[in-house]
Amino acid sequence: MNLRKAAMLGALGLVIAAPAAAADGPDLQPAPQATIVAGAEACLGSTIDPSGQTARFAGWTAATPDQKKGVNVDSDGIVVHRDNVMIAFKTGTDGGCVVMATAATDFDPATFYPQISTVVGARVQPAETPTPITLPDGEIFIPVISPKTSSAAPKIILVFANSASKFAKKGN
């Protein structure tokens, strides 16, 4: 993955695309849309609700070092995966949660955006430029979805951060 998401993720202080080796982030195989949406559901509340962490990430598995290639996480950050979807998260005011996936052929923007909107409790729609969306739980959500082309599947990064974080304050 390219674009400014490396900077965006770096700004979160959570996940930073490893230099050189992973300008494109982790090497992810195609993932079903349902799991990508489930990843967003797991992330929601990560920064504000550490006590709910166990329930949120039930069904997700700790990533192996090999799976984490291309992702650097703070020492107290956690990386999990399921069905080729990877999530890195860290609780707390300046924590965050990032869902990373390459969409499989079942990806359909006509259903994906409504599904994500339902999960996060705010309207999410396609945008030329990644736009922060304030969520009802006080988090901010930034979807970064590259368009599908004839030669490439859509790359999806869903970023959750706390709206009270120092990074969000800078952004505002």
């Binding site: 920064t47 005011t93 739980d137 006080g138 709206s163 009270a164 974080s165 120092k166 969000a168 304050k169």
Partner: peptide
Amino acid sequence: IAASGKTI
């Protein structure tokens, strides 16, 4: 969380 002028 109390920061940046808000409480969550």
